[in-house]
Amino acid sequence: MDKLLQYGRELLKLELQEAQKLPNRLGKDFVEACQLILSNKGKVVVSGIGKSGHIGKKIAASLASTGSPAFFMHPSEALHGDLGMITKNDVAILISYSGRAKEFNFILPILSAMSVPVIAITGGLDSPLAKSARAVLDISIEQEACPMGLAPTSSSTNTLLMGDALAIAVMRARGFKEEDFARSHPAGSLGAKLLNHVKDVMRQGDLVPKIPHTATVFDAMLELSRTGVGLVAICQDNNKIAGVFTDGDLRRLLLKNGTLQDSISSVMTSPGFQIPESWKAVEALKSFNDHNITAAPVVNSAGELVGALNIHDLHQAGIS
Rank of each mutant, 00 (worst) to 15 (best):
G188Y: 09
K88G: 00
H213S: 13
P117I: 08
K102E: 14
L194D: 08
G163R: 04
V298L: 12
D247P: 13
A242S: 15
V282I: 05
N89L: 12
H80V: 03
D126C: 04
H74S: 04
L137T: 11
G205K: 14
G188M: 10
A302M: 10
L260K: 06
S47E: 01
G318L: 05
S65M: 02
G258Q: 07
L150C: 14
L190E: 07
D313V: 12
M114H: 07
T214P: 01
L129P: 11
A173I: 00
P69K: 08
L125Q: 13
T214Y: 07
N158K: 14
V44T: 09
A281H: 00
D200F: 08
A317S: 10
N24S: 08
M148E: 15
Q261W: 01
G53N: 08
L222D: 02
A302R: 14
P117N: 08
A284T: 01
N89I: 02
I241G: 05
I107A: 06
G228P: 05
S301L: 14
K280W: 03
L207R: 14
D219A: 07
K13G: 01
V136E: 03
A284P: 00
A173S: 10
R25P: 03
A120F: 09
R9Q: 13
L5K: 13
I37G: 02
D206Y: 12
N239Q: 15
G188F: 06
I37S: 01
A308S: 15
A182S: 09
R174V: 04
P69S: 07
A296E: 05
R251Y: 12
L166T: 03
I141G: 06
P297V: 07
N89V: 02
N40E: 01
L250P: 11
R183F: 07
I119P: 07
T153A: 15
H74K: 03
F273T: 02
F104G: 12
L36S: 00
A295V: 04
L63F: 08
L129N: 11
V267T: 02
A296P: 07
Q20V: 00
P212I: 10
A101Q: 06
L253E: 10
M202E: 12
E103W: 05
M85K: 08
L22I: 13
G175I: 10
L190P: 06
S156W: 12
P186S: 06
F106P: 00
I211C: 14
I37A: 01
G230N: 07
D290G: 00
L125K: 13
A182Q: 03
A192M: 13
F30H: 06
L14S: 08
G307Q: 09
K51W: 04
D290N: 10
M148I: 15
S68E: 07
N40A: 13
D180V: 04
V232I: 08
L190G: 08
L26A: 02
L137C: 04
V44Y: 02
T87K: 09
N24H: 06
G50E: 05
A169G: 02
S266A: 11
D90G: 06
L63N: 07
